[in-house]
Amino acid sequence: MRSLVAAPVLFGAYGVARVLDGLDGSRGPGLAWAVGHLCFLAGLALFVPIFGRLRSVAGGGATATAGYVIGLVGALALTAQFTIDVVVGFLSADHDAMSPRFDAVKAIPGVEPVVYGVVPLLFYVGLLMLVAQLALQRRVPWWSPVLVLVQAVVPLATKDLIPVGAVLLLVAFAPLMRARPVRPGALAQGAL
């Protein structure tokens, strides 16, 4: 499945663009800001089929469906966040002009927790749930969910490590390239 490769590559491209954007001492607006954010948005869009595939490979069921839904909710929140970033970047003449626009958006009730706070983290929670379930089913190696977790945590040290996280995600997804979906209930019956 090409999206298993393309999504991490696009996330990595965002990370590289972010690093390049910060070389002048500030981030956004400009070409690197716009291209980076658009790459991340394209990568997020690819997670719709990725989450669906992970759910299918896990055999469906309540846990896989919960991971699928949680991941998609987080992806929607991240999509809103990055769309706001792109729009603010396009509307702003320079970096200083961006702050009041972001402040105005964040002042809208509910936007802070839903778009910038807890809800975007659900993307990573859902992804980890699905890949961990596949590891428990021995459909992927034990290290796949470990790499998914590490790639989610590494940027917390510094967002300049986003490209490293993208490489880790690509490696974590490698075993999924050959994993095949199973019909719901087949895993419970022991048939693969």
Rank of each mutant, 00 (worst) to 15 (best):
G15A: 11
V35W: 11
V146L: 09
A7L: 10
L169V: 01
R101T: 10
G185V: 00
T79M: 02
P184D: 01
A42H: 03
L72N: 13
V9R: 10
V119Y: 11
K106L: 13
L192R: 11
L134C: 05
A7W: 01
V171L: 04
V118Y: 09
V5M: 11
V73I: 02
D94F: 11
V119Q: 11
G43L: 08
R18W: 15
S3W: 04
V118N: 06
P29I: 10
G28D: 05
L187S: 07
R101W: 12
P8E: 00
G185K: 03
L38W: 03
V154N: 01
P29R: 09
A34T: 15
A34E: 07
A157Q: 07
A6V: 15
M129W: 13
V16H: 03
Y14G: 03
G22Y: 14
L147E: 11
Q189L: 01
G61W: 04
L38I: 05
A132H: 04
P49Y: 00
A186I: 00
I162H: 07
A17L: 14
D24Q: 03
G67W: 09
L147Y: 11
Q81N: 04
I50L: 09
G36L: 14
L38C: 10
L72A: 06
T83H: 10
V88L: 00
H95A: 08
L121Y: 02
V153W: 02
L192M: 12
M1N: 14
V115P: 03
A6L: 13
L76E: 09
L76C: 12
G165W: 14
V125P: 01
V171N: 02
A77R: 08
E112W: 00
D103M: 12
S99A: 08
G25N: 06
G117Q: 04
D24A: 02
D96I: 13
G185L: 00
R55A: 13
G165V: 02
Y124F: 14
F90G: 14
D103R: 15
L122H: 08
P29S: 04
R55D: 06
V16Y: 09
D94T: 02
L78M: 06
H95L: 09
A93H: 12
V154G: 01
G165Y: 13
V73N: 14
S99T: 09
G110K: 04
S3C: 08
A7M: 09
L168E: 12
